[in-house]
Design a binder for these strands. Structure first.
Lengths: 365, 365
DNA sequence: GCGGGATGTTTAACCGTTTACCGTCGCCCA
DNA sequence: TGGGCGACGGTAAACGGTTAAACATCCCGC
């Protein structure tokens, strides 16, 4: 005897499919087939089995199911942190779509640490999730590409599927799906919005250290300026990380450095905008009366401060990632492997047309 | 992770423990033992095996491992929504502790719907997570108690463990762990803080419909008033749900109903405080110069608005839940089955001592 | 020389499903 | 009347690990 009968040891033993089969007077195969619904069955048998399931309160063992080759019932998402609203909203989208498809959602956080990212991917690999969604801003250097290539191949080998979300695409030989959103287009649009209101000196606040997201945003900003024939002044691009207090600092330092020579601010994201707004207020400058301001992300707090910003479809990113991966899992030849979701301006009340006291550029209008 | 899989790569089939055993020239049992580290082994064998693992880039199959009876590698958490900061921070704590213990984290959301909660618990039951953490505010009626009892028993039968987080405890015969935090004590302390500053007419804004969290907070508020011999005026308890816009509404309606007869506001949580603050400002009332205000939760935005509030150890709640469940899993007789975490006041700049123009109560001070 | 740990490894019996492969039973059609 | 077929249901072999128990060494003291 290898294993003691459970009857004396524990009061009760988990209910297995064998118990259900015995209770219903059929074989385990029949129970399995009826529950998975992938096989014809006589209505009478069906009823018997379902009743047994209900009476015994049976739920299948996911481990056994996964082992026996049935497709997995879970999707995985890896983010920097769950408390950051940006990631939280993407995660919410993943959650939602997973729930719709009857799957559950495994979440890993990395805190931005590549070491932990690797460890988490290994765990996900063990878990055989249907897909592993990696989300967020990143430095797209060679080390990154190589790492992602490794992940993608290892996951593919385990029957899983890597999805990059809001990250740049890899080479065509890497088995990864990509869903991103239009940072450059959004930045272009909202910069144009300011330019159309007559603003010419637009301060840009944001990161500029090869992270892809801020890079794309600043690219849109520059392109809009160029297309409107506004000279590009590097002095108007202030560098800081994408946090609230950095917005505060950047404005303070800019105002301390000399007289204000900007009429509008383009904050690299809404958090920066919130911090910048506070700093401006502390200098007696009101938005939008004295300075116009726009942001990027459209996360809930931006509605509270009436910020005109660029809407990023965070939840849709997550949902799309899941949808794409599952479509691919169902049909290996599914064509979608790279989608770019659109962004759009949300106009609130933080921009005013510029009335220039002097008419240095009379052609402007 | 090894850069490339072994050169022969066997038709791109996932690497199993058998492959590792063959590669290292030992039996699968030896590999299993060495990897789980639960058995003595000769250093030479160990080295061989670990090298094989590295060269083949092997990771164990979690399903097989789970099936074979090894303890599960995952903890589960069920929340209303991941985008709500309160839940997000608890989830972060769960995440963190899970990562420390080398486990991963399954997340389910219910949107507050009992139907979805049940479905999610069933999924978790299938998954055989080591514990299932249910977090959040709830109406503690009989239906709730019965439902939780069912969950707890079903999970226990599946070798899992129900943990209630921030929820009231159940009967002693229900196999569930509880970790909560001191709502009443926090509310008592912060109300006393206002009272010590001389405030007597304190407006309470919050829910009052048998949800346990606001109920406990209002209880602390009332007790503090009673202990300071301040008569309780039901007219000062304004009812609304725990959202930002509700705070706004409640203040507006209160001010519309008659002349202001309060000198301080105790908002049921920080969101309400933010909304209330905005509404007060719109009426030309500044905080803390004209009206003092305190909140509850101490989530990040409250630092931005300099709000004196009650700190709730959100992350610690999540971490404790995981720790307790795992301790219990390791040692069935572990005594901890109900902990109450403390809360404390965080003093910022939203309360001013009250200077009463008239001296109706000269004894006060 | 030999019983007897201590130590390290192998053998094989599970874990709870799914699913390929067969058998059975009516029924229809030559 | 027999053969083929469709609808159901059963049997048993995976799936990839863990682990109790058996087994093989080696070392030691008497």
């Amino acid at each position: 005897m290898v294993r003691r009968a459970a009857s004396d040891d524990q009061g009760r033993r988990p209910v297995t499919i064998r118990d259900v089969a015995a209770h219903a007077g059929v074989s385990v195969a029949t129970v399995s087939r009826i529950l998975s619904g992938t096989y014809p069955s006589a209505p009478a048998t069906r009823t018997k089995v379902l009743r047994a399931v209900r009476e015994l309160d049976y739920v299948a063992n996911a481990n056994a199911r996964g082992l026996a080759g049935a497709s997995s019932r879970s999707v995985a998402i890896i983010v920097n942190s769950v408390v950051s609203p940006h990631y939280a909203h993407v995660a919410q989208g993943v959650q939602t779509q997973a729930a719709i498809e009857g799957k559950l959602c495994i979440v890993g956080t990395t805190g931005g640490d590549a070491e932990r990212e690797l460890a988490t991917v290994q765990l996900m690999r063990e878990e055989h999730a249907e897909c592993v969604i990696l989300v967020g801003n990143v430095v797209a250097d060679d080390a990154y590409r190589e790492r992602m290539g490794d992940y993608a191949r290892a996951l593919a080998l385990a029957g899983s599927q890597l999805v990059l979300c809001g990250r740049p695409t890899l080479g065509p030989d890497v088995p990864a799906l990509v869903v991103e959103y239009d940072n450059t287009g959004g930045a272009y649009a909202i910069t144009s919005h300011l330019l159309s209101a007559g603003h010419r000196r637009i301060l840009f606040l944001g990161r500029r250290d090869s992270y892809t997201t801020p890079e794309s945003r600043i690219a849109g900003y520059r392109k809009a300026l160029a297309d409107h024939n506004v000279p590009h002044d590097p002095g108007l691009e202030v560098v800081g990380s994408m946090e609230r207090r950095e917005g505060h600092r950047m404005i303070n330092e800019t105002l301390a450095a000399g007289p204000r020579d900007f009429t509008a601010v383009f904050a690299g994201n809404d958090l920066i905008a919130a911090g910048a707004r506070q700093a401006l207020r502390e200098h007696g400058l009101r938005i939008p009366e004295d300075v116009s301001m726009v942001g990027f992300d459209d996360l809930p707090p931006s509605a509270d401060i009436d910020l005109t910003t660029v809407h990023v479809p965070h939840e849709e990113l997550g949902r799309t990632a899941v949808r794409m991966a599952l479509a691919r899992a169902r049909d290996k030849s599914d064509p979608a492997e790279h989608v770019m979701l659109g962004t759009h301006i949300v106009v609130r009340d933080s921009v005013r047309p510029l009335i220039r006291p002097d008419a240095k550029q009379p052609d402007a209008e």
